[in-house]
């Protein structure tokens, strides 16, 4: 960049680009911050002071949104789908990661690529058969059916993350155990699983977030209100009543986002690295 070049050595050389980038990043942080601020305002204050921080912060909008939209139920469902879906996916993916990285199974690259196609597959290409399959099995519009689907579609991402990790474990670690007569399962149980724990944690967390953010499957494979995750249930705010005020939908958005924001704040580095590794999923 020539303009940077010219300023090299000047004290301004850092201040100007930093200010520019800061101004640009404002575009990214302003909408979420605005939503957060609006959620803490009363109806009257939103009108009087749309941009500033809330003068008299109130939790009324949160309280109202929580009750009117049955957020307790929506949260329960979202937690259930995210946690159970990811847990099932881990259980499916971990032995597979072990098998694919430690054993020269004939045709393994082909099989591995096949499993990974799920990652890049638009959901629209499988939704009609899935809909029909789940209906035949009596699993359409059931929590268990959606968990199964999330497990199946989350498995390849975990497989990718954990295969990279498991193949990095030195084989010598297992040799001693094998001499002691340990079986494949023993090695998996006593060596692979404990050593892979960090990867399991990262993979589980990211998969948890992915399922929390997921919309298409939940929208189509569920129709009962009491089974909806928050990402579909939150659309209740778009009715006339909610959308004529700004603070109620803002509060609903903040609440729906809270678990993810918390995860992001407390496991920031972790998540970014993991998401980066598996960005294909998104």
């Amino acid at each position: 960049m020539p303009w940077i070049d010219r300023m090299r050595g000047l004290p301004l050389g850092r201040i100007v680009p930093t200010t520019l980038i800061a101004a640009f990043s404002l575009l990214w942080i302003f909408p979420p911050l605005l939503t957060l601020a609006t959620a803490f305002k009363s109806d009257a204050e939103v009108l009087a002071n749309p941009f500033g921080l809330p003068a008299v912060p109130t939790l009324d909008a949160f309280r109202y949104a929580w009750q009117a939209m049955d957020y307790a139920g929506l949260f329960f469902n979202s937690f259930l789908y995210s946690a159970a879906g990811s847990a099932f996916a881990v259980v499916l993916a971990l032995p597979a990661a072990y098998a694919f990285s430690w054993f020269r199974i004939p045709g393994r690259v082909l099989l591995f690529v096949m499993l990974l196609t799920t990652l890049m597959l638009p959901q629209q290409t499988v939704i009609l058969p899935l809909f029909s399959l789940l209906r035949t099995l009596g699993l359409l519009d059931t929590r268990f059916g959606l968990i199964l689907v999330h497990a199946a579609f989350g498995m390849p991402f975990l497989l990718l993350v954990m295969t990279g990790f498991v193949s990095g474990i030195p084989r010598e670690v297992a040799d001693a155990a094998r001499i002691d007569g340990c079986s494949d399962f023993g090695i998996f149980r006593y060596i692979i699983v404990p050593l892979t724990m960090p990867a399991i944690a990262v993979g589980f967390t990211i998969n948890f977030i992915n399922i929390w953010k997921e919309y298409f499957f939940a929208l189509i494979l569920l129709s009962s209100q009491d089974a909806m995750p928050i990402n579909v249930g939150i659309l209740g705010v778009t009715n006339d009543f909610f959308f004529t005020s700004l603070n109620l939908p803002s509060a609903a958005i903040v609440l729906a986002q809270l678990p993810l924001i918390l995860l992001y704040v407390f496991a920031n580095r972790w998540i970014r690295q993991g998401m980066f590794a598996g960005a294909i999923k998104s």
């Binding site: 032995p95 597979a96 196609t117 290409t125 199964l148 199946a152 390849p156």
Partner: peptide
């Protein structure tokens, strides 16, 4: 020799793939 690896490491994930992804693609 490799019952666990074969069944849980290969067959099960591939079966899950076939039921939820592979077959749906073909059926679609």
């Amino acid at each position: 020799n490799r019952g666990f690896v074969l069944v849980f490491g290969i067959i099960l994930p591939v079966a899950v793939y076939v039921v939820f992804v592979g077959w749906p693609i073909l059926f679609n």
